[in-house]
Design a protein around this nucleic acid. Sequence first.
DNA 1: AATCCATACAACCGCCGACGC
DNA 2: CGCGTCGGCGGTTGTATGGAT
Length: 346
Amino acid sequence: MGKDKMNNNNKAKLRKGLWSPEEDEKLIKYMLTNGQGCWSDIARNAGLFRCGKSCRLRWINYLRPDLKRGAFSSQEEQLIVHLHSILGNRWSQIAARLPGRTDNEIKNFWNSALKKRLKLNNVIISAPPTSSSTNHDSDSSSDQPSRDHHHHVTTGGIMIPIPMSMYSSSLSTTSSTSMSNMQSIVTSKQFDPFLVPDDSSDMTGLTGFFNVPTSLTTQVGMGDGLFYGGDYGMVLESNKLGLESDIFLPPLENIRSNNIINEETNNNVVIGMKGHNNNNISSNINTCFNNTIDHNNQGSRVEDVFGFDQNHWGSGETLRVGEWDLEGLMENIVVPSFPFLDFQVE
DNA sequence: AATCCATACAACCGCCGACGC
DNA sequence: CGCGTCGGCGGTTGTATGGAT
């Protein structure tokens, strides 16, 4: 019996399942009054008969004031697809680049809408390589990559890494996820997720989000075995780049200083709760995509599948994603990361 | 109206690393 | 060093909901 299982048994009196509005209210009040701390203490002190873990999850995924509500915008969808092509199933890291979105939300979104769409549109989603490094994922029946906590996700996602014209046509989307393929692509500089296209006005890809200068900070395939994403602040291990890349991000604290100002200057803390049985999030995503299956294509490009507008990113129009100007936000974040993941109310 | 089915998503589970003792 | 606790993560499940029949 696992440790957590024993803990669960020891806490059999604790509530499980859906949260009641009263529980939500208790947690919100406590968090706004006392801020974050030890979740076990929070659960206890807030008068919640829940385990700390449950409280944490509820707060992070549902009650946090800075959470965005509503369906994913097309920009967010594109960003998710793009980031997933780079990061694989590292939902937390993807969420870190989508302000107001949680890893759970993105994961659900991916597992429902996006993955389905991609499959419908004949995009190759790589099958998970049989991993011998872990034994706890052997029961996984999904095509999700195996996970281990040394950041060696053994695959990830879709074989249409970047919706940009920067890629050589030799980047076949029909092949299986191959380390050697990916490496060769990488080392030949045909695959650098963070490069900026020559035409800097081409914001079709998401490089605009990353604010990666075309300057020299981008090193690809250097001898130290690391790939630097320049100002993006990422380090990719060369032997794992592409769909198997390891990406190291600086601690959130490092960038919070850049963003905390906005948080602190915003004195209006709004509790935007999703009501119980009052979920206004409808699946507008169905209308966002074209379900046309092109049987002639053995692998579609993401922008084809999702109907990316080549001019979209460079249109200059103000993008509204909830309350966020996602584009502007990303542009202003040198090291893109989500400052509120460890949200704390002062 | 009843039933079935697909979907969305909230929440749980199990695992791991970090940390303190 | 071993152990327990905690937080975090990704995978999976459970349930509410809406549409189709």
